[in-house]
């Protein structure tokens, strides 16, 4: 393995990892406040990809309009999801909430299957992202660079909202103590809706970029990225936004590098992420940057 190939793999890993990171942020934010794994979060990825396809093909919008529209539509979908499947269960046992999340995920997937069909659709990738730049011996697609940069930019924006605005303060308060926050006169349903809005919008950005990277859009495309992003969130420390991003990058790099160094393991790629999850839960359940708030016996 030459240095060039190694560098190439690092860049590929960072590119994949940044996608995990975008999706992981949504998991970590919702978990921080509701203590719920939003199983349907991965399916928002799929929703965004289809929304972008239909925006581009059905309404023949240019990509710089249809992609942001897909993000807006997905954010609305996220709020609807909370309103329909999670809000009625705020005071129910946790197990009911989780089952509701699984049901919502299956409903989204199967609705997409019925309405759109199971045949994978190609994604209309704008040709801007196809260009290849060469740095020395390195040849990199624009796409590969755009994703990590975009992730960092969105992360900065999110951190600003969470740490510098009033609603961000309310979100942080809600994740520390749900009941007391409510006593302080904060409208929690509103705070949760905004959390879903932000998380879903980021998942949508991730989904559109995922579809550009792997242009095969099908109703179940969000399942595996969703699970891996959740693992990334746990790895980084659930509840911590920066942790989710760090976890995402580490997971992406780890997956790419392991397969690059030991090609025989390629078949086991999907299992590696779960082994990482199990090891983290066994030895450092709070993750890399998490506060000790994991539900443990």
């Amino acid at each position: 393995m030459t240095a060039t190939i190694f560098l190439q793999q690092i860049i590929n890993g960072a590119s994949l990892g940044s996608l995990y990171a975008l999706v992981a942020i949504g998991y970590t934010m919702v978990y921080g406040i509701l203590r719920l794994i939003n199983f349907a979060h991965g399916d928002l990825l799929m929703f965004a990809a289809y929304a972008a396809i239909y925006g581009s093909t059905l309404f023949s919008l240019p990509w710089f309009i249809s992609f942001p529209l897909a993000v807006v539509a997905t954010a609305a979908m996220g709020i609807l999801l909370d309103r329909a499947a999670y809000r009625p269960l705020r005071d129910a046992p946790r197990i009911s909430l989780l089952i509701s999340a699984i049901g919502a995920s299956f409903l989204l997937e199967n609705l997409a299957l019925v309405v759109i069909g199971g045949v994978p659709k190609g994604f209309p990738r704008p040709s801007v992202f196809d260009q290849v730049i060469s740095v020395g011996e390195l040849r990199i697609q624009i796409m590969t660079i755009v994703t990590p940069v975009m992730t960092i930019v969105l992360l900065m924006g999110l951190l600003y909202i969470v740490h510098r605005t009033k609603i961000g303060k309310a979100m942080r308060a809600a994740s520390k103590d749900f009941e007391t926050t409510r006593l302080m006169g904060i409208n929690l349903d509103w705070v949760i809706a905004v959390t879903f809005l932000l998380g879903s919008a980021l998942a949508a950005a991730g989904g559109v970029m995922w579809a550009m990277k792997y242009p095969q859009v099908n109703p179940f495309m969000g399942v595996i990225p969703g699970l891996k992003a959740f693992i990334a969130a746990v790895l980084g420390g659930i509840g911590s936004i920066v942790g989710a991003v760090v976890g995402g990058f580490l997971l992406g790099l780890g997956e790419i590098l392991i397969v690059a160094f030991v090609p025989e393991l390629a078949l086991y790629r999907d299992a590696i992420a779960f082994l990482i999850l199990i090891l983290v839960l066994l030895f450092r359940p709070t993750g890399i940057m998490g506060e000790p708030m994991i539900d443990k016996s």
Partner: peptide
């Protein structure tokens, strides 16, 4: 070693 949502995701992981 874990409970709740984590147990759900770990068992899901073993299934995978």
């Amino acid at each position: 070693r874990v409970r709740g949502d984590y147990l759900a995701i770990v068992t899901l992981g073993f299934g995978e």
